[in-house]
């Protein structure tokens, strides 16, 4: 465990944004656009924002959201989330024009290596959320990008166009076979991993832990570097509560902390939970 305070968290801001726009992608997945001048310039791909969804004691804690897209010229960012409980419901109910209580950007994001033939993004479900900002950044350095995205059903795939507009080649999978490859996203990746590994590539991924475990194995077996974005319970998001521990593979005597050392880790650093 690094015993120092994460520099990226020391530049986070406690501020308020204005909800500009909300768009339902599916019945329960929502995209929100929030205006804020202080945070937007600081956001790095893979960082997150802790949002207080209501001025209330229940829910009490902030909720962490990956930044989905940034527009630094127009001073807004977007988040993409699913309504899964009271907290996310309250956020979804926020009126356009209302203030949103923000803390961020937090954590350490993706690192784009200098020499890369192309980038491989792998998302499971809403693990897609941090990958568009990354794509925006990859586009700046003209690194070709391919995306493998798996979902239970085809409903959420409408936002694929956001990636395609940035020139990303997209491969889709559904568990129910209703669209694209019939199976999991890691099975889809496996069908072409032999071709991929001939080039200098890096995998960038986010999704449910079982998927991340499988992907970690694929990346190790094929000797492809892999950056994993993890999600855990956390109370603060800035290295104080020590609630977001994950098992460290580098040092079995220590844990890593998602908000302080992550949320993006090199795959060999950590073991995703069950």
């Amino acid at each position: 465990m690094k015993n120092t305070v994460s520099p990226s968290n020391l530049s986070s801001k406690l501020t308020r944004g204005i909800l500009l726009e909300k768009k339902f992608i599916t019945r329960s997945i929502i995209k929100m656009r929030i205006a804020n001048e202080e945070i937007v310039d600081l956001i790095q791909p893979g960082q997150f924002i802790n949002i207080r969804v209501a001025d209330s004691f229940s829910p009490l804690l902030r909720r962490p959201f990956s930044v989905f897209r940034v527009n630094k010229g127009e001073n807004w960012f977007e988040i993409l989330f699913q309504i899964i409980g009271k907290g996310t419901q309250l956020l979804a109910d926020t009126q356009i024009g209302a203030e949103v209580d923000l803390l961020g950007p937090l954590g350490n994001g993706f690192v784009i290596p200098k020499k890369l033939d192309f980038a491989v993004l792998v998302a499971g479900g809403l693990g897609i959320a941090p990958l568009l900002v990354l794509t925006q950044e990859l586009k700046k350095t003209n690194i070709p990008t391919i995306l493998f995205w798996g979902n239970r059903t085809k409903d959420a795939f409408t936002i694929v166009s956001d990636f395609e507009k940035l020139g990303v080649k997209v491969f889709l999978a559904t568990d129910d076979g209703s669209f694209g490859f019939n199976g999991t996203v890691t099975e889809l990746l496996n069908t072409t991993v032999e071709n991929i590994k001939k080039s200098t590539v890096e995998i960038f991924t986010c999704g449910p832990n079982p998927m991340l475990k499988t992907l970690k194995k694929i990346s190790i077996n094929n000797n492809i570097p892999c950056q994993i974005s993890l999600e855990t319970q956390m109370a603060c998001g800035f290295g104080v509560c020590m609630g977001c521990n994950v098992t460290s593979k580098m040092d079995s005597e220590q844990y890593k902390y998602v908000c302080q050392h992550g949320p993006v880790f090199d795959s060999w650093e950590i073991e995703p939970g069950d």
């Binding site: 009490l60 319970q233 020590m242 609630g243 977001c244 521990n245 994950v246």
Partner: peptide, 18 residues
Amino acid sequence: RIGNPSPRIAETPCGMLN
């Protein structure tokens, strides 16, 4: 002390367990 395994945090009505 490395502390306890994960999960270490759970939100409860108007409070949290750690």
